[in-house]
Amino acid sequence: MSETVTSTQVHGGGATADQIVSVDSATNQHIQVRINRGEAGEIEGRWEEFTVPLAKGMVVLDTVLWVQAHQANDLAARWNCKAAKCGSCSAEINGKPRLMCKTRVEDFNLAEPILIQPLQTFKRIKDLVTDVSWNYRINATIKPFTPRQDREWKWFQHDADRAQEMRKCIECFLCQDVCHVLRYQTEEKPQFAGPRYFVRTAGLDFHPMDGAERLEQLADEHGLGLCNITYCCSEVCPEHIAITHNAIIPEKERVVDEFHDPVKKFIRKIQKKK
């Protein structure tokens, strides 16, 4: 089935569903997508299957938008830039947390329906849209950037590299979604900030001119010790931030450095005696 362009409306620079399935890009193939739908607070939801015309280069978000435009006008889905930079279209596709706009349909076995679910860690608002506001409340608890007053404001690129990696985060919350500490604890979540906020904290802690101390907050209030370094957060990050390698483990090691390193303890004792 091929469609002609019926709309010139462009959302955030991306093409509309009809533009994607255009005369130029349409193939004769159709694919099945199975979307998990539900109202606010529904946990299991219901699966609805749709047949969508396949277009070359199609991403999963295109299939959702096509369904929205042609078969289920009340289907709720959050998206904005369609360029993998706004972090809005996070979902679980064939069971894996991904950005819908960055996941190509052709990467899947098209003989089977593609499963599209909302993020499983957060409460559903409607269909594929979840309430991620809890994350912003955690964010507000982090000690903000506190400029040092005791040093000249001069540093080099290699001093800023580590902090800059953390600043690539687009807040898609895929890492929060996949993190099993948050994901499989029902009702009451543990006292745990989650990988996104270890990234933010590391971005501040590795800023060459930041002077705030966040180790106690990390260890206690933000529950760094609950992380058992499964690397799942790193695996799903669309910005390829090495979350475990470059944020979580360095922060865990800073805790050891500060409080438990045997050689450092010995040196500190000698320095105190002097």
């Binding site: 607070g41 946990i43 299991e44 939801g45 679980e92 064939n94 069971g95 894996k96 076995n109 089977e112 499963l115 679910q117 909302p118 993020l119 499983q120 860690t121 957060f122 409460k123 559903r124 979840t130 809890w134 955690i138 608890t141 948050l182 994901r183 499989y184 604890q185 029902t186 009702e187 009451e188 979540k189 006292q191 900030a193 209030e221 933000h222």
Partner: peptide
Amino acid sequence: MKQTLTAHVGAPGFGKTERRD
């Protein structure tokens, strides 16, 4: 910082997933 946040995921059980790989 206790958080009440009902997830979609129901009661855990080993190996429950929609992953196909």
